[in-house]
Design a protein around this nucleic acid. Structure first.
Lengths: 184, 184
DNA sequence: ACTTATGTGGATCGCTGATCCGAATCAGCG
DNA sequence: CGCTGATTCGGATCAGCGATCCACATAAGT
């Protein structure tokens, strides 16, 4: 890649990051290009779709979440590991308003640039879930995709301004439905 | 209202109904106008926003759901009434792909044309919830808005093609979190 | 039948993302 | 250093969206 192209790419990623933080993932691509003092065509050549841009921007975060799952797998009890990782996932999505919808679409669309990252995330969750199920502390009638769906639904709640204040408590409600441990 | 205007209005509602059934609530308003052999301006004069159109289209359904809640209140046990009404709500949204997002936005936006209907729905659910809580069969740490949020989240799941197949089972998972009855 | 209030829809605006292609720029070689 | 060729850039353009304007058509009341 030519030096000027690389510079543009990096600059675009930086600008896109702050634009998305401010306005959510639905921010106008033209706006990003403008703020980066670059033509729209240049943005779209580097990142042919919005998904591609997000993938480049979020891949690090995805990897961190997956790594965190690995760490928790050996450092915490099965149920604590599962719940705290789920909490991390939901909390992370709040930084990228609107990303949940794209991820839900990408998990099944093998063409999407976000597909691989979403599958990785689901697999990480599935491992934690299986471990908790083996320990008898998570209900056994759900699988990794169910978990992904529940996290997505909770993340979506956090994206809705009117419902966001409830998101944290409803996370606990859903978590209690996944776990089978405590008395009640 | 002039007779020709009334005719146009009714025709637009009918066409909008089938268009939305086919393509979801995000269908192009221009498409609806075209299919109704009417100018876009005419559609927008009768229904100044997408919300207004949906309100006119869905008000009947809203009223039916609210009435159904009233009926269940006297005909079923508190927990059966609550769960089966929630199921009805989620099932209903599947007929109008994408309506959940608009409803979540409308519940807090008093300017939205859908606001009143959403508030009515929330109130109907809140009554069923309170009744179940009084009977000791629903957890007491949630309120009507929480219930609305949970239904919205489940409905949103049903709207996502990749997650929809899980929606029914995840409804049961969430329902089990709301109820406190059975042994488990 | 005439007048007036009402309803209509083509045209246009600003916006979105997608695409094309002439112009500018970079990199490597003589 | 200067030329050449491949690469990159971005303004212009296109089709689509909802919103708005206003000259025109038409229904309703006298």
């Amino acid at each position: 890649m030519r030096a000027d192209a690389r510079k543009n790419r990096d600059h675009l990623l930086a600008v896109a990051g702050s634009a998305i933080t401010e306005q959510g993932v639905d921010v106008s691509l033209r706006d990003i290009a403008r703020r980066a003092d670059v033509g729209l065509a240049t943005l779209l050549r580097h990142f042919p779709t919005r998904e591609a841009l997000l993938d480049a921007l979020l891949r690090t975060s995805f990897d961190e979440l997956a790594a965190q799952a690995g760490r928790l797998e050996t450092s915490s009890s099965p149920e604590d590991a599962l719940v705290s990782w789920l909490r991390d996932c939901v909390a992370w999505t709040t930084e990228y308003r609107g990303v949940t919808v794209l991820m839900a679409a990408a998990i099944e669309d093998t063409e999407s640039a976000l597909h691989a990252s979403c599958v990785t995330l689901r697999a990480a969750g599935a491992r934690l879930l299986t471990r908790a199920q083996a320990a008898g502390t998570a209900r056994s009638d759900i699988d990794g995709t169910d978990l992904f769906a529940l996290v997505a639904a909770l993340a979506w709640l956090g994206d809705q301004p009117s419902l966001a204040p409830r998101a944290n408590r409803l996370f606990e409600v859903v978590a209690s439905a996944i776990l089978t441990n405590a008395g009640q």
